[in-house]
Write a protein that binds this DNA or RNA. Structure first.
Ligand SMILES: [Zn+2]
Ligand SMILES: [Zn+2]
Ligand SMILES: [Zn+2]
Ligand SMILES: [Zn+2]
Lengths: 650, 650
DNA sequence: ATACGTCCAACGTTCATGTGC
DNA sequence: CGCACATGAACGTTGGACGTA
């Protein structure tokens, strides 16, 4: 086993030959550690009773009090046989794996004797590596490189479609096909369609380079609500600096570097440049080269000039499902990954039935104070403006975001000189709001074997003759009536419809729910973060994609209310999402990655999402720790999947 | 370290056929091995050359000469139906359990044809999994995730104990100590008190041996509601066999084998018996011997005759906290298990203030159809009977249990001949019920620095002079009024107080909440399991002890409503818990371990818990389990503890 | 004993950031 | 400045050790 080759063993177990041998090799410094292994063993056991390990305050990272044998930094455990810090471990791994050989630049008597400590360890690679080897780091413990964890996306879709095809066939056998239109198109055709346009994604299209501090999604109507974060330090509390809201990767997508910088594909790999020193670099170059070739050879990827009109490259329609089959969609989402695959595929490959008749999502309290664009042709954007509206005005919106909790626990991370002697109260939040899209009124249909069980009962009467995916909704203005309840349709049932309780500005809401005591600008209210921090669990978040992420959840549920979205709508939605992100980020001082994912959900083709889901499962990448967390708890698989992530497709 | 054993193994097999084969394949890596191991290898190889199975010297690991059918490494026996190594077995388990799907990165003709052997098995997970399946590994043999082991739970408690001192110190500096009574007893004194009576628990006291199929907690008043599971096969569905509800361990506690079987402590360890074949057994024997010695030498552990009167050995009082500081307790619970340990300590070591005036927990719908013993002297039991009552009657109880979800996902696992061709509907549940103990009406107090912020505002007027842990509640009959709301006190606010909506027997609950369409006997209703299966998330479970386990959570919250419990109450509570367990187990066909833990919580004294901690404390105090748990989680410590712990105090 | 399980140290990758050219 | 590469903190994975029925 590779692992077994750890030097560790030698040092620890034999106490004799090998350790002595190694110690003999480096007699100069080994005095402090020739006793080292055995004595250190004793020492460590002794230390166990004291402060053997110290935890980083800001993260789950554990650092031991044992110093790195190379640089005397805090080690994070044994690496390659010795106690070493992460940096030295990584350095050793990279050096060994790439077969690097460094040369000390020092001359004279100080040659090869550079000081290697925490602050100087990067000064001389040669001496650092020498020190690593001298301290006994085991080359053989460096394993071979493994494959990438997630792959380049679109290519692999077609590979796995056959499997999904069988899966879907089981469903399609249950479907009562009328009008000859298969509501579940076979994956073979889907694969063909996908492969036809593969790697030709126009969504990786450039925009105008803009100020990074402003909303990159062109002129937002919400800009008037932007808090001048940099201009006005009027807030009473000194706040940590706002992190960048958009990652470099996303910024490269929406606002890429100058397009003609694609290097010409190298005809020969060995001529790739002067700094290729080994094979591995060549392999990487090969991959890059392949990518470049693909992008070049893709039939429909011209060199797109910079433009603000990103939407011209978006798909012309983005059909969403029939709300009368909302229960079936819920089932698909609840069933985990493979079903959401079908969901996404159906979502993309079906023709929109409700062609130009776009549902307008009506919110209970639909006086949009923000949106100037709640036009009926853009229901997605309307949903999002209502989302922001709710976020601003409504007292009972479930206000959970993990970053907020993280914020209140880590908020003084960057500012050690603040007074944080008193612990922040962690206050649970009792939420009263419910998402109607996950209400359950279909318990009785569990025994029926056809897809009719998934029909929304309130709408099934006038839709029984239509195909599940080609319905004509009876009323287009209310797309979600999850409870089968008559009355005003609600996108997000944030409150009792009549609002019998006035919104108390104080905190003693008799409903017990979190009230937003601020106005429409909740940015600098510290109570929000403190309050939301107590909500450890997402309250009524459906077990779907975007679970655990409230705002993404709201987003995805608002998507369910949309029948179509046009490119313009996608852009506007991104704008809205960015606005939400900025508001939240102003509170939490984090990047609010969930909303980045929400944008990516919009800006990514379903094929891309599909490929990612195939590879990673429906989880946020940064949330997989939760599944690890749940791995230790007693939850079952489905729960772990749902609770652990179920995040955005990308 | 332990890992070194792997290397040893590889080397000592090198002379064999398989090793030669492997060495031929990857000569590069084997050549680079240190020469120091070669001698060892020769030696061991000679030793074990002709044995079919060999055991590593350093561990009990046994490797066979049969190669892994997947990667040709040495197998350690059959895993999931085929001979496989540990790595492939674990990989298969993880992949199946997490429902992963991988995509081979290879292109062209070599796609999905990656070499899978010992050294390359980690290069392509897709091909590895494919190979696993091809070789016949059985997906169905992968079981569900189990809960954390008891030892893990103990260690976590130990870790949290170490932290709680600091945590509590931060609070105690803020506490205005009046009457000279430190409301936070130092852990040193607590430890001393615990160690004084350590392992002398009279609670490990025998009972009458009873039928295992009946409730071992004597005659339950709920027995009339028991479904004659074995006698009446009247249920339409053939159900899988009910697992044993009580582990052998627990049964030994409550109903032990004949008591005088305590063996005399062996004076010499080397004479321990004939079946000690190695050191490991001797070590275990040493531990056992030590235990026996301790039990014998404990001053107050007489040989207790079998008796039904277990309660005579229970503590006479079981004081619970002041409800006026309920918010503080909530905070403690929200902060994770470290705080809940304080909870336990405070809970036990404080004198009951409300001495004989036991609070009666009144439930909103308090017409107990089950309990014949809702006497005022047993509030704990009353809480539990109301729990059962709610479980039976109430439509809006958050009905989540991981085992239920697990059941519906795999319910036909053991019975292949059932028809399960149609997929089970997974139906999300929209829950309306809220746990009042985690309601938040204390947002405004986040900036106050004293413990007064934790005071329940509705009760704080007449309690401001009392110590946080020694209050005199103003009204004893309503212990929890979490919202600061006047009106009927609610233990678990399962419904709107006035019940404006009649409980609809159908499924079209306008509230969108899960209704129990069955009567008071929900045992054989398949819709319950199906419906509850959709509830992936515990709705409003506080992030406390027993998080993720609804019923335990309800239990622990009901504890908050109890000021005292008498031995009789503990027994009756165990009865009630068992009843709940049986009902749930009838649905889920699992053992419902969470409720076993709940009983242990009752039957174990805080001294026992503490003694275990102290006993193991120095050993585990600085271990890295928590770090590993937290290492991958972006959550802060408290959250991770709360989310990952979810266990009973023991 | 076998074959499930969990646990966790020590591997791995990923990617924002830093640094030198 | 941009580019290319190195760095290391933060997660994810693996498999040997050990618990349990
Ligand atoms: Zn170092
Ligand atoms: Zn140097
Ligand atoms: Zn194998
Ligand atoms: Zn492959």
């Amino acid at each position: 086993m590779d692992r077994s080759s750890g030097q560790t063993l030698n040092h620890h177990y034999d106490g004799g030959t090998i350790a002595n041998m190694i110690d003999c090799t480096d007699s100069s410094t080994s005095e402090s550690r020739s006793t080292s292994d055995d004595q250190q063993h004793q020492h460590q056991h002794h230390q166990h009773h004291h402060h053997h390990q110290s935890q980083n305050l800001n993260s789950g990272r554990i650092l031991l009090n044992i110093p790195c044998k190379v640089c005397a930094d805090y080690s994070s455990g044994k690496h390659y046989g010795v106690f070493a810090c992460d940096g030295c471990a990584g350095f050793f791994k990279r050096s060994i794996r790439r077969n690097r050989s460094y040369v000390c630049k020092a001359r004279g008597s100080s040659a090869n004797r550079c000081l290697v400590d925490k602050t100087h360890r990067n000064q001389c690679r040669a001496c650092r590596l020498k020190r690593c080897l001298k301290e006994g780091m085991n080359k053989d413990a460096v394993q071979e490189e493994r494959g990438p964890r997630n792959s380049t996306l679109r290519r692999q879709v077609a590979i796995n479609l056959a499997q999904s095809n069988r899966h879907l066939a089981a469903y399609s056998s249950l479907v009562d096909l009328n009008s000859g239109l298969n509501p579940y198109p076979s994956f073979a055709s889907a694969a063909a369609a996908a492969s036809a346009t593969t790697t030709a994604s126009p969504y990786i299209s450039p925009l105008h380079p803009q100020m990074t501090l402003f909303n990159p999604f062109t002129s937002s109507p919400y800009r008037s609500y932007e808090s001048p974060a940099s201009s006005s330090p009027s807030s009473s509390l000194m706040q940590p600096p706002l992190p960048p809201l958009i990652s470099n990767k996303e910024m490269n997508v929406i606002n890429p570097p100058p397009p003609p910088t694609l290097p010409p594909p190298s005809p020969s790999l060995n001529q790739n440049g002067s700094n290729n020193t080994n094979d591995k670099t060549n392999v990487n170059k090969l991959k890059e080269n392949d990518e470049i070739l693909k992008m070049r050879s893709s039939p429909s990827s011209p060199i797109i000039p910079r433009s603000n009109n990103m939407h011209q490259f978006l798909p012309t329609s983005f059909p969403i499902f029939d709300p009368s089959y909302i229960n079936y969609y819920k089932h698909l989402f609840a069933n985990g990954k493979e079903s959401s695959l079908n969901f996404l595929l159906n979502l993309y490959h079906q023709k929109p039935i409700i062609d130009h008749q776009v549902a307008t999502t009506s919110v209970a309290t639909s006086t949009s104070t923000i949106s100037s664009s709640s036009s009926s042709t853009n229901s997605m954007h309307s949903a999002h403006s209502s989302l922001i509206n709710s976020l601003n005005n409504h007292p009972t919106i479930p206000f959970y975001h993990p970053a907020i909790a993280a914020y209140s626990n880590r908020n003084h991370h960057h500012h050690h000189n603040h007074n944080h002697s008193q612990p922040k109260p962690i206050i649970p939040i009792n939420e009263k709001s419910h998402n109607p899209t996950i209400s359950s009124n279909h318990l009785s249909s569990s025994t029926s074997s056809s897809l009719d069980q998934w029909k929304n009962e309130s709408n099934s009467s006038n839709r029984s003759s239509s195909s599940p995916c080609s319905p004509t909704p009876s009323r287009t203005s209310s797309t979600i009536s999850a409870n089968g309840q008559d009355g005003p349709p609600q996108l997000i049932s944030l409150s009792p419809p009549s609002q019998s309780q006035p919104i108390a500005p104080t905190l003693t809401n008799p409903f017990g729910s979190l009230s937003h005591p601020f106005g429409p600008f909740p940015i600098n209210s510290p109570t929000v973060a403190a309050a939301a921090a107590g909500s450890m669990f997402p309250a009524h978040v459906p077990p779907s994609l975007f679970a655990n992420h409230l705002l993404s959840s709201i987003f995805i549920n608002s998507v369910l209310a949309v029948h179509r979205i046009k490119p313009n709508g996608i852009q506007r939605s991104c704008r809205a999402i960015y606005d939400i992100q900025r508001r939240l980020a102003a509170i939490t001082r984090t990047r609010e990655l969930a909303l980045v994912y929400a944008r990516q959900y919009l800006l990514t083709t379903p094929e891309e999402i599909l490929a990612t889901i195939i590879e990673r499962g429906p989880q946020f990448q940064f949330l997989t720790e939760q599944s690890t967390l749940l791995h230790h708890s007693g939850l079952a698989i489905g729960n772990a999947c749902a609770a652990g992530g179920c995040g955005s497709g990308l």
